[in-house]
């Protein structure tokens, strides 16, 4: 059973591992710097499907199937399937669950969904409710564009603070069997809203939530060794900069161990402006960047902070500010 350390951090018992995982990305992500780390890529944004939504569902399904195959598991061993995406009523995930026989728990935490899922899956296993639990998360650039912004063929200029929703999916199967990646701690986030209402500037909106979660973790574990890497989900260039500033104001200088999945996913030449974003972003980057480094012990302890902007098209049009959240999860090499 897990224990609480300090105010907000949870310590899991010793035996929760990422048993196997797989990532699937789109063409733009596959042209980026992490190409070699992905398990599968779609040559175009439809992959022969009739809509963006169907293509996104296929990405999730492929990711789950590849994760099962890499872990030599039968789908029937999954005690739970958790996950979410950015589509209305998380249909990419629910439609993936329709092919499974295991119980399904749908999650929505915007782009923090993946970290939220890892936390809940670890809790389920730690509490003895599950042997194996799969966590899925995905996003698709075009399905998000048409839902939150404009038709994909409409000519609109992107702002400098704007981020590029990644076409990516990740599937992670957690279990008790020893593997190189151990999930040891978690800091679930709380909702923080600092009054940003510009949906083209999610980085500024989410930075306080991320800083809040990171500071809580660092305070709770101040006697422990610092992580070698604190990696936020999709703060982007601007959000990352603000997050570091907020942490420094509280006395935490983590600049040297900080990075962001949205920044790692693309090169600057790919013209994403402030970097990548989306539920699939952190799921893809954890598998393509962090886990391979944990496996060879180039990294030993990673704090992944999934960041989410909890807005909707209706809230944006009604002029509401953007509530944000960030969930932290610690993965250590064994």
């Amino acid at each position: 059973m897990g224990t609480k350390i300090g105010q907000r951090t949870y310590q899991f018992s010793e035996d929760i591992y990422i048993h196997s995982y797989a990532t699937v990305v789109g063409r733009k992500e596959y042209s980026g710097p992490l190409a070699a780390g992905f398990d599968y890529h779609f040559a175009d944004n439809l992959h022969g499907e009739a809509s963006w939504e169907k293509a996104e569902q296929k990405m999730q399904q492929y990711a789950l199937e590849l994760a099962l195959s890499k872990g030599s598991l039968d789908p029937s061993v999954l005690d739970f399937f958790l996950g979410g995406d950015l589509l209305n009523q998380i249909i990419a995930t629910t439609f993936t669950a329709r092919n499974l026989t295991s119980p399904f728990l749908g999650l929505y935490g915007a782009c923090s969904t993946f970290a939220e899922g890892l936390f809940l899956a670890a809790c389920l296993i730690d509490g003895g409710f599950a042997q194996y639990t799969a966590v899925n998360a995905s996003s698709h650039h075009d399905s998000v564009e048409r839902q939150l912004r404009y038709p994909t063929e409409m000519g609109v200029q992107r702002l400098m603070t704007a981020q590029w929703t990644a076409t990516a999916a990740g599937s992670y199967i957690l279990g008790r069997q020893t593997s190189p990646f151990r999930i040891t701690q978690a800091v679930p986030g709380r909702v923080v809203d600092m009054g940003i209402s510009d949906n083209n500037d999610m980085g500024s909106a989410m930075a306080p939530a991320a800083a809040d979660t990171i500071a809580a973790y660092l305070t709770d574990t101040k006697d422990e060794k610092l992580p070698d890497l604190i990696i936020t989900g999709d703060l982007g260039v601007l959000g990352g900069q603000i997050c570091l500033k907020l942490l420094l104001n509280q006395g935490w200088d983590v600049k040297n161990i900080y990075n962001d999945c949205g920044i790692l996913l693309y090169t600057t030449e790919q013209d994403t402006h402030s970097g990548g974003s989306g539920s699939g972003c952190s799921a893809a980057v954890l598998g393509a960047y962090c886990l391979p480094r944990l496996e060879v012990k180039q990294l030993n302890k990673v704090l992944l902070v999934g960041t989410g902007a909890l807005l909707s098209p209706a809230s944006t049009q009604q002029g509401e500010t953007i509530p944000c959240i960030a969930h932290g999860i610690v993965i250590e090499s064994r």
Partner: peptide, 8 residues
């Protein structure tokens, strides 16, 4: 606080 961080 963030006014100075905005990209040009």
């Amino acid at each position: 606080l963030i006014a100075s961080d905005a990209p040009k």
